[in-house]
């Protein structure tokens, strides 16, 4: 038996539309159909110009972040069947970012924030090969493993009202990844990252709403990471203030 549902897609065609507008499609759905599958069906059968990003279809690449009925979701792991009772699904772009076309947003603001916290291991001096591998115990790995699960899907940025108020706020994922490297026993780049995180638009605009962790498809808990970073950042802030005073003397 075929079942139908209304899928409303927020369209935005640069140069044509002044702002996003809803285009409704009546589609037949099946139990195993994800929102991503539904969008593919629309693109194939109804609207070939519909633009959206996707790649892995299995919650790994983080490309298909969208707003589904007001909630930030990955289209690949969100299923049409869960909205059957409502009878209608509205899909829009992650509009905390500039919308390029339809469901595609400009990820540059996030990438710049991520780059600013140097999300890679920083060594004080290059480790010669003769020293062999850098050992890490399972306990040392456990300290930060959760944060390595981030797939950069940007759902946490969509969930953050502080990002909506101040687009320059460093935000959840970039902080969680900075924290991941700060907790890594092979890293010695803390001071550089705290300099960025103690900036006016660093971690401090966070008021711990916590919705970022709620929507995270990989259970990274960026809200928790930011609170831990806040506690760890204070001594670095105090030292920087003292250094400033010394310099001004």
């Amino acid at each position: 038996m075929s079942q139908t549902i209304t899928l409303e897609v927020m369209r935005y065609r640069p140069g044509v539309d002044a702002k996003p507008w809803p285009q409704a499609f009546q589609i037949e759905w099946t139990q195993d159909m994800s929102i991503l599958d539904a969008l593919a069906l629309i693109k194939d059968d109804f609207e070939p110009e519909l633009a959206y990003r996707w790649s892995c279809r299995m919650e790994v690449c983080g490309s298909c972040g969208m707003v589904v009925n007001g909630e930030p979701k990955l289209a690949c792991s969100t299923f049409v069947r869960d909205y059957a009772a409502k009878g209608k699904i509205t899909v829009g772009a992650l509009d905390q970012f500039p919308i390029e076309k339809d469901l595609i947003v400009d990820a540059d603001p996030f990438i710049q924030k991520l780059e600013s916290v140097k999300p890679y291991i920083i060594s004080k001096k290059a480790r010669p090969l003769s020293e062999k591998e850098h050992k890490q115990t399972p306990a040392q790995l456990a300290k930060f493993k959760q944060y390595t699960m981030c797939i950069n899907c940007m759902l946490c940025y969509q969930a953050c009202p502080q990002v909506g108020i101040n687009a320059d706020f460093l935000g959840p994922a970039a902080t969680a990844l900075a924290h991941r490297y700060n907790l890594d026993n092979r890293d010695s780049g803390k001071a550089q990252r705290f300099k960025v995180m103690n900036d006016e638009n660093g971690i401090w605009p966070c008021t711990f709403v916590g919705y970022c962790s709620e929507v995270c498809p990989k259970h990274v808990d960026p809200a928790g990471a930011i609170q831990q970073v806040k506690a760890a950042a204070v001594p670095f802030w105090a030292i920087s203030q003292l250094q400033k005073e010394e310099e001004s003397k």
């Binding site: 935005y12 640069p14 919308i99 390029e100």
Partner: peptide, 9 residues
């Protein structure tokens, strides 16, 4: 040319 739409919360 690009003409991104910037939404306001």
């Amino acid at each position: 040319s690009r003409k991104p739409y910037v939404a306001k919360q």
